[in-house]
Design a protein around this nucleic acid. Structure first.
Length: 298
DNA sequence: CGCCGATCGCCCGCTTTCTA
DNA sequence: TAGAAAGCGGGCGATCGGCG
């Protein structure tokens, strides 16, 4: 086979298949990876010869590009992906690969896959905003609050991006840093990156800022509360795999009750979440949360 | 049509790890 | 502990695609 027969985009297919192979099998020798890739690319009607030297170069590239570390076990000669539990980025990248692979398949699977019909999410602004945040450029956005008729032009100092419930938000300040607000990307109608720079407050860390928040609201004039909630054991299983918040601690877990403790602000987001559990949740404390929920349901 | 950069295979040599 | 085996990176050349 002549070199380069399969074009320039091939390296991307290789990276993806290497990652896919190692995810499926957990571990594989180079020959197994080579065979896996040969089998996966057989439909391309071109022999895909994968040289060990290329593979070794690819490992380096995968590490640099995606931060996915692949190590070899020198006893068994098997390669594995080094999964670091703290790194959410890796998991998300691998998940995105799965979806990408599914949606970009040349076959028409539309009769087998039911996709959620999403409105435009504003994800096209992610790259531009990240660029502005990283290089400390001011931005001006045309922003339409969902409860207002007209869009409003605002000049913002972009600080961070945040994801919540499959939506993306811009965390930004206005002129001074006295108020930091959250802007939903799907409500941005236009984004202009300004040539002017701003000085980023050194103390701002998005993960610290939202540490005690459930969702995207951080009250300015309140403190987080210790919140005790009871669920039925069935909901408990769900909450064990998908904790409500990083502060979640299990207090009781038996066949009658699943009780947890959270340390978060009492916000609209939190109350909506609790209401979505219907009568399977019971609020033990604090009193403030009980009252607020009662107010909403009356 | 020639130049240039990117990719990849091949080869070499250094380093690390295993094993007797 | 020393030699063997394997990993890994660098150099080199062939090839290809883009570009003027």
């Amino acid at each position: 086979m002549a070199k380069g027969d399969y074009g320039k985009r091939n390296f991307f297919i290789r990276y993806f298949l290497v990652i896919k192979c190692l995810r499926n099998r957990k571990k594989a020798t180079f020959n197994e990876i080579r065979e896996f890739i040969a089998a996966e690319t057989a439909i391309l009607d071109k022999e895909f010869i994968y040289e060990i030297r290329t593979f070794q170069r690819d490992l380096n590239d995968i590490r640099c590009l995606f931060g996915i570390d692949i190590k070899i076990n020198r006893l068994t000669h098997e390669y594995t992906i080094v999964e670091s539990e703290t790194d959410h980025f890796n998991t998300r990248i691998l998940e995105s690969f799965d979806i990408f692979n599914l949606l970009s398949s040349s076959q028409d699977f539309s009769q087998y896959i039911s996709l959620e019909r999403k409105c435009k999410q504003g994800t096209e602004y992610l790259h531009g905003l990240l660029y502005a945040i990283n290089n400390r450029f001011k931005v001006s956005v045309l922003y339409k609050k969902y409860y207002e008729q007209n869009a409003e032009k605002c000049e913002l100092l972009p600080l961070a991006l945040k994801e919540f419930k499959a939506r993306w938000y811009l965390i930004a300040a206005r002129g001074s840093y006295t108020t930091i607000r959250t802007y939903a990307l799907d409500r941005i109608q236009k984004l202009i990156i300004q040539p002017e720079k701003y000085i980023r407050p050194q103390s701002f860390d998005v993960n610290v800022f939202f540490k005690d928040c459930f969702g995207i609201i951080r009250p300015e004039d309140d403190d987080p509360y210790e919140i005790i909630l009871s669920f039925d054991p069935f909901q408990g299983n769900y909450l064990k795999s998908y904790p409500l918040h990083t502060s979640q601690e299990i207090l009781i877990d038996n066949n009658k009750e699943f009780r947890i403790k959270l340390f978060v602000f009492i916000t609209y987001d939190l109350m909506m979440e609790l209401l979505s559990f219907g009568n399977t949740v019971r609020i033990h404390s604090p009193l403030k949360l009980k009252k607020e929920i009662r107010k909403m349901t009356m």
